[in-house]
């Protein structure tokens, strides 16, 4: 009996097929892969322009086969706005970490969300500044030790972590806001479905969309990749609950 091999999973076409610079077990790679899969599946390769951040994903443009620009730290939503305004039919997304988006770039993300223009933001929340060596981020949890909160983050000295998805969902501009987690196969499937909705919110011209991805940073967390996934479930999710915080009519 003749047999053929059916493809269950292969690398996306939008993936440039290079070995990334990310540390072993870092979920940036997972988020990258989901982006590439969706760009393939939704036929967006020819019209995509990605805006990369300053942070671990600064070299993101090396790994994809669509057009890319590299923004200044925190300014990706402004740059994406400039690109989208000049080319409204293109698909424009930013990919930003928590220092980039929630600290130095807070003004840009809030106003991009408030304008509500159809751009998409993939937001990586791993609770620290990974690229610079694990300093405290706006998303660092209370009690969490980082290189700049060596005794653990306290409200008295460092203030409180920011829940970006909930905050932006208060605005009228966004069409789709969700928080997902990249900690397990089931949650990664859900993450992809949320990203699909976010991409669709732009493709269908409905409005601004953002997916916040709870992610790991095994190197700076000083945990193994597997322990890092467990930490997301045990420590991060209780503070940063998963869910859809804004779903405008027509987003699917």
């Amino acid at each position: 009996m003749a047999e053929e091999m059916k493809v269950i999973y292969e690398r996306p076409r939008s993936w440039a097929n290079k070995v990334t610079h990310y540390c072993p077990g870092c979920t940036h790679g997972v988020a990258h892969r989901l982006v590439a899969e969706l760009v393939d599946e939704m036929g967006l390769l020819d019209k995509t322009i990605a805006v990369w951040p300053v942070g671990c994903a600064v070299l993101g443009y090396e790994y994809f086969t669509f057009d890319s620009v590299e923004a200044a730290h925190g300014r990706a939503p402004a740059m994406a706005t400039g690109i989208k305004v000049t080319n409204p039919d293109n698909f424009v997304f930013t990919y930003q970490g928590d220092g980039d988006l929630a600290s130095i770039g807070m003004a840009e993300i809030v106003h991009a969300a408030a304008r509500g223009w159809p751009i998409t933001v993939i937001f990586i929340n791993n609770g620290n500044y990974g690229m610079t060596g694990g300093q405290m981020a706006p998303t660092t949890l209370l009690g969490q030790k980082t290189t700049t909160s060596p005794l653990g983050r306290t409200p008295q000295t460092n203030g409180f972590p920011i829940r970006v998805a909930e905050m932006l969902a208060q605005l009228d501009g966004p069409a789709y806001i969700a928080r997902v987690s990249l900690d397990s196969p089931v949650n990664i499937r859900k993450a992809k479905s949320a990203m699909r909705k976010a991409f669709n919110a732009q493709v269908r011209g409905i409005g601004f969309s953002m997916v916040e991805c709870l992610s790991t940073c095994p190197t700076n967390w000083k945990l193994t990749p597997v322990e890092s996934m467990e930490r997301i479930r045990k420590e991060v999710m209780p503070y940063f609950p998963l869910g859809e915080f804004k779903v405008a009519q027509g987003v699917l």
Binding site: M1, A2, E3, E4, M5, K6, V7, I8, Y9, E10, R11, P12, W15, V19, T20, Y22, P24, G25, C26, T27, H28, G29, V30, H32, R33, A36, S184, P185, I188, R189
Partner: peptide
């Protein structure tokens, strides 16, 4: 395995009857 792999290192196939 392919879902969690951060390095896009895994491809999966399955036999089907021709």
């Amino acid at each position: 395995c392919a879902l969690v792999c951060p390095d896009i290192a895994i491809a999966l196939y399955r036999e089907v009857k021709a």
